[in-house]
Nucleic acid binder design. Structure first.
Length: 444
RNA sequence: GCCGCUAUCGUCUAGGGGACUAGGACGCCGCCCUCUCACGGCGGAAACCGGGGUUCGAAUCCCCGUAGCGGUACCA
């Protein structure tokens, strides 16, 4: 099996493209086949080296490796010209100066469902000659057979007047030369497939096996964009998702295992993925579910691993203790700092929390807490907990009445990791200092 | 307009003529756990687009309609 991923470098790698890459990768790894990476850069206006680099970077982050390439389509210009001449010489293609207006006029005259046929000229763009009769049938693993009547097809332009080739021609030739056995790509290419098939047929070449994947949409059914949470791999990364969780989630968008299992490691995905079970309906990207899944993966990591990833993500170091007490409470790497940053940067400023918990009553409690913590020895979970529970018992109040004022004193907010854990991570000196500071600030 | 694809809970899906009073997951709601927020556990609400067929019997097969999406570029 030889598959390929062929993005065009006209922007960042979008989630839909990432899923296409992932499916091809899973297929190749499952079958012990070869994944070829080809950069479809025949649109020279929109293709940039920066975009190529971004795509490669996204694939690296997703940990999707390829076996051949990246091959630039532009680098194959010579070969394209050769094949073009071959088609021209064989009468399968012709030059024509017909414009889009000419095509429209033709249809106005012959009916909209009648495909455009041009007359051969000495100059102009190169059009592929579509037979007048018959049909081209696309055999698709996912969709079955789709028949395209030739009479409905326009003679497609396969090379511009300046000689540069167009997508539907280049893709057919490149897949052929690369020995691609399975073309797995988005459904938006289904309608173009007969054109590519016609090129192959004119060349007397065999057909690859096709599989057109359902498209991905945003929560509103529209094209995926940033306001849906993320549209590109880069945005996913910045949002603090783990590549392994993204692989799991993206695979599930359009495919389900036979037992409908949700959490599947990459090894399991490789083991179980197959084209037969790919869905035919478009799927909507659901950032909520990704978050949940990401949280599951996050909690599977060892503290050391998670710490390393968070230190890379935040650019800070010495995070281990804070990570250890926060991991139950975060779903993404991005959730960590808002929750635990106070440990390093000092208490947050939340007037509402202060007002609610550090009034007269709260401060009185805090004073007791301070006294109780002062002599705790050692300053570890158990003794600290015992000391605080002593305050609760002595004051005959609900635990919350003691813990919340303390929390606000330490974190500046009403939400934080567990209070005993937080105290221990901060240490006695820092904890007492923060309590003192809270007591100094006048009640509002 | 024309050509084509698709159609099960809000979302991702299981289902491939009787096993369906339609299963799972996210989300949502309730309860439990509980120092906040989470995590975890338990329970609940929630769907076969509409209409015709075929059949003893359709979520499952066929047709029509409708809707969504894609293509219709000298874009990819």
């Amino acid at each position: 099996m030889r598959v390929r991923f062929a993005p065009s470098p006209t922007g960042a790698l979008h989630i839909g493209g990432a899923r296409t890459a992932l499916y091809n990768w899973l297929l190749a790894r499952h079958a012990g086949g070869t994944l070829v990476l080809r950069i479809e850069d025949t649109d020279r206006e929109r293709s940039t080296p920066e975009n190529v680099e971004q795509i490669l970077d996204a694939l690296r982050w997703l940990e999707l490796d390829y076996d051949e390439g990246p091959i630039s389509q532009i680098s194959r210009t010579e070969r394209h010209q050769e094949v073009l001449e071959q088609l021209l010489a064989g009468g399968h293609a012709y030059r024509s100066n017909a414009t889009a207006d000419d095509v429209r006029a033709f249809k106005a005259e012959h009916g909209a469902q009648r495909g455009f046929r041009g007359a051969a000229e000495d100059t102009g763009a190169v059009r592929l000659r579509v037979p007048d009769d018959g049909a081209t049938v696309v055999h698709d693993v996912i969709r079955g057979e789709t028949t395209f009547q030739h009479t409905h097809l326009d003679d497609p332009v396969i090379a511009r007047a300046d000689g540069s080739v167009l997508y539907n021609f280049a893709v057919a030739v490149d897949d052929l030369d690369a020995g691609i056995t399975h073309v797995v790509r988005g459904e938006d290419h289904l309608s173009n497939t007969p054109k590519q098939l016609l090129v192959l047929e004119a060349l007397g070449a065999p057909q690859p096996i096709y599989a057109h994947l359902p498209l991905l949409h945003g929560p509103d059914g529209k094209k995926l964009s940033k306001r849906h949470g993320a549209a590109s791999v880069q945005e996913l990364r910045e949002a603090g998702f783990l590549p392994e969780a993204v692989r799991n989630y993206l695979t599930l968008l359009g495919w389900g295992s036979d037992d409908d299992q949700t959490i599947l490691s990459t090894a399991e995905l490789i083991e179980r993925f197959g084209l037969e079970r790919v869905s035919r309906n478009p799927a909507q990207f659901d950032a909520q579910k990704l978050r949940w899944l990401n949280g599951r993966y996050l909690r599977e990591l060892t503290v050391d691993d998670l710490t390393a990833r968070l230190e890379e993500y935040t650019g800070r170091s010495g995070l281990r203790g804070a990570v250890e007490i926060s991991r139950e409470k975060v779903q993404t790497l991005a959730d960590f700092w808002p929750l635990a940053g106070f440990i390093f940067d000092g208490p947050a400023d939340d007037p509402a929390a202060r007002e609610k918990w550090l009034g007269e009553e709260g401060r009185a409690v805090l004073a007791d807490v301070r006294a109780a913590l002062q002599d705790v020895e050692p300053f570890d979970m158990e003794p600290v907990q015992a000391a605080l529970e002593g305050v609760v018992a002595a004051r005959e109040v609900k635990p919350k009445a003691v813990f919340q004022p303390l929390r606000v004193a330490l974190a500046g907010r009403a939400v934080s990791p567990g209070i005993f854990e937080t105290l221990v991570v901060l240490g006695r000196d820092e904890s007492l200092a923060r309590i003192d500071r809270a007591l100094e600030i006048p009640a509002t």
